[in-house]
Design a protein around this nucleic acid. Structure first.
Length: 119
DNA sequence: CCACTGACGAGTG
DNA sequence: GCACTCGCCAGTG
């Protein structure tokens, strides 16, 4: 195709799609960090982009956006927050993800690790 | 077309 | 450990 500058992917539809595809692969009861998702999507270093992609998610999408947390294992607060972060935390707890006393998830135990036997 | 914004992360002082 | 800066991409006014 026409060279997309330095696009590492030839048939890459939209980068958003790549991000969504990765997020969909996160198994229930596990979480991934923005940076991790970005890297898996072939966009290393673009953690911010992942956040934006998720923010642009249409309502009703099956993307498990709630399983994406920041590098600290905490739910990132949105600008227009409206308690959505609380909902996200509740959803995760419902999947078996446990939060520490400081409200952070122990990534060492719950971080999704693809390519290692599945989980 | 320009400027600003937005679910982040790593580095620096 | 905290405050600040830079980088990255796409959408919107």
């Amino acid at each position: 195709m026409t060279r997309r500058g330095a696009a590492p992917f030839a048939a890459a539809p939209n980068r958003f799609e790549r991000v969504y595809a990765v997020v969909r692969r996160i198994p229930r009861g596990r979480v991934a960090t923005y940076g991790q998702v970005a890297a898996l999507a072939g966009l290393p270093g673009h953690a911010r982009f992942v956040g934006y992609a998720l923010a642009a998610l249409p309502a009703g999408s099956r993307v498990a956006w709630q399983r994406v947390v920041n590098a600290q294992g905490r739910v990132s607060a949105r600008r227009d927050g409206a308690g959505v972060e609380a909902l996200q935390a509740a959803m995760l707890r419902g999947e078996g993800v446990r939060f520490g006393p400081d409200g952070a998830i122990a990534l060492a135990a719950f971080r999704w690790r693809p390519g290692r036997g599945g989980r």
